[in-house]
């Protein structure tokens, strides 16, 4: 099992590292090189944005960091261990304990309420009921959705759904929160609000975020911006604050 990069471990060590990672997809009869020899370390507490046009490899990097896909070559180091030799099912505990996911299409479970959607990752971790309730309420409060806890996703606006998704990602205090185009399905005002929320959580809670986006306003919020083109890193920019 991959240990969670948590307290008691070297806090200066990166949360996750991609070392010499390449990946190809087959689309019909043609091979598409999604990633070419990528080296990237995600540091604790950072707000990293993967920027680039469609097909540049943003989602593939997030999938590899999220331990839901495997590279063709190179290493994906998570919690100090190379995860490449392990099967995806064997990595389920690492995903469960250490990674929070925010999807472009929200991906909430429609038959569960807002509260239950946020509670779900804690049930997987067998957190006792009392503590679960406390943590879910705290997460909903952080995203400003306490008053919608009993509603089903279909009864929420797009922004509320994404805030539920964020609450579900942060409720387990993961080592890293991965957000794939989190504002793409939202209007610009709601997108900005969601982005502000993630920045606040990063600043106030110390949560590590890795976002992908091709929206310049979102990209501009990143403290470190990794620019991608055709599966390769074009450049890395550091920003203050």
């Amino acid at each position: 099992m991959i240990p969670a990069p948590a307290a008691g471990r070297d806090l200066s060590a990166p949360v996750a590292v991609l070392a010499g990672v390449s990946k190809e997809y087959v689309l019909g009869k043609t091979k598409v090189r999604a990633l070419r020899n990528i080296d990237l370390a995600v540091n604790r507490g950072e707000f990293l944005v993967l920027a680039g046009p469609s097909g540049s490899g943003k989602t593939t990097i997030l999938n590899l960091l999220g331990l839901i896909d495997k590279p063709d070559s190179g290493r994906v180091i998570f919690g100090g261990k190379n995860t490449v030799p392990l099967g995806l099912n064997a990595l389920a505990p690492a995903r469960r304990d250490s990674i929070g996911y925010i999807f472009q299409a929200f991906n909430l479970i429609p038959v569960l309420s807002v509260f239950e959607n946020v509670e779900y990752p804690l049930i997987l971790r067998r957190v006792p009921a009392g503590e679960r309730r406390r943590r879910v309420e705290s997460a909903l409060e952080k995203v400003g959705l306490s008053h919608r806890r009993k509603h089903r996703p279909s009864e929420l606006s797009g922004g509320e759904r994404q805030r539920t998704s964020i609450a579900r990602a942060i409720v387990k205090n993961p080592a890293v929160v991965l957000a794939d185009e989190p504002t793409a399905n939202l209007d610009s005002e709601t997108g900005a609000t969601i982005c502000d929320l993630m920045r606040r959580l990063n600043r106030n809670e110390g949560a590590t975020f890795v976002l992908s986006s091709h929206d310049p306003r979102i990209i501009g919020t990143g403290r470190r911006i990794v620019r991608l083109r055709d599966g390769a890193i074009e450049g890395i920019e550091e920003q203050g604050g």
Partner: peptide, 13 residues
Amino acid sequence: PEIGTLLALGTNR
């Protein structure tokens, strides 16, 4: 897609 979400969240097989 929901099965994919559950697996991504750490639900095992």
